[in-house]
């Protein structure tokens, strides 16, 4: 008896031909990528590669210059504000620094999405937030203020807030940044567990290689706003692309300097 595998997976996230600018500088250059339902996609790249920018656009925090971003079939570049509000209930985000609200306790932080979007009674909300806190091993910490938590605990509390509405899409910005290796590994395990339990589609932006190889189904490698490659962990590891290899082997970037450009730069003339 063979178990039928799900062959007709739909893309939970589709980014098509995305171009974005910061002021007049182009940040993302015709980016195309898809994330399948239930998949963990890691977006990797060096500093300034545009990976955080790509995440911010996927979250609908900025307006793109051109191109489209579809989340669960809705194009967020053209969607109405009301529809976007609805869509956001299916999205959870764990920011780099946690972004817990400092004026609220951990429990209130986790409760906030429930309080704003549902009409559950107080007791149910408390129970749900305690459940999510125990998922991230923070049971019993609900009455503490964020300032009383360690870096790893803040990230886990932020994760509890992100999953309190059982979102279909979960986004992580640099989950392991600022954590010791053990805390980072714990967070990776949590990410895997959540995917297993809820079949959540997960997008992780990181430059941490260990964590990437531990959790990723597929990897998108960004460089200077362009996609270098999208592939499975093995495909990326075995890629013969020079930039990818230098990223994997932590080699320093060799910046090629053009003599004329350098002279212009030194004399403060604007190059075109």
């Amino acid at each position: 008896m063979t178990k039928q595998t799900d062959t007709q997976q739909d893309a939970a996230i589709e980014v098509e031909d995305l171009v974005t600018h910061y002021g007049s500088t182009k940040i993302l250059n015709h980016v195309d990528m898809q994330v399948q339902t239930g998949e963990i996609m890691v977006i990797m790249g060096g500093s300034g590669s545009g990976k955080s920018t790509l995440l911010r656009y996927m979250l609908g925090l900025h307006k793109a210059t051109s191109g489209s971003i579809k989340l669960l079939g809705h194009d967020i570049t053209t969607i109405s504000a009301k529809e976007m509000d609805k869509l956001r209930k299916n999205m959870g985000v764990s920011f780099q620094g946690g972004a817990l609200f400092n004026s609220m306790t951990v429990g209130e932080n986790v409760c906030l999405p429930l309080r704003e979007h549902t009409h559950l009674d107080e007791n149910t909300m408390q129970i749900m937030s305690r459940m999510k806190l125990s998922v991230v091993n923070l049971g019993g910490f609900e009455d503490l203020m964020p300032a009383q938590l360690s870096g790893g605990m803040i990230k886990r509390a932020a994760l509890a807030r992100a999953i309190v509405m059982d979102p279909k899409l979960l986004f992580f910005d640099e989950p392991s940044a600022g954590l010791d290796p053990v805390a980072a590994a714990e967070l990776d395990d949590l990410i895997l567990r959540i995917r297993k339990a809820l079949n959540t589609t997960i997008v992780v932006v990181t430059h941490d290689l260990d964590s990437t190889f531990r959790i990723a189904d597929r990897i998108t490698v960004l460089d200077k706003g362009n996609i270098l490659m999208i592939g499975t962990v093995d495909e990326v590891r075995n890629s013969d692309n020079e930039r990818i290899q230098s990223l994997l082997n932590r080699e320093a970037r060799h910046v090629e300097i053009n003599a004329d450009e350098y002279l212009k730069e030194l004399t403060g003339q604007k190059s075109d």
């Binding site: 956001r88 985000v93 972004a99 704003e116 979007h117």
Partner: peptide
């Protein structure tokens, strides 16, 4: 301003508030 740099404003927006 502090909420802005701690990404709390972004967090509000992605929660849908």
């Amino acid at each position: 301003g502090t909420m802005q740099i701690a990404q709390e404003i972004d967090a509000l927006r992605v929660i849908g508030i």
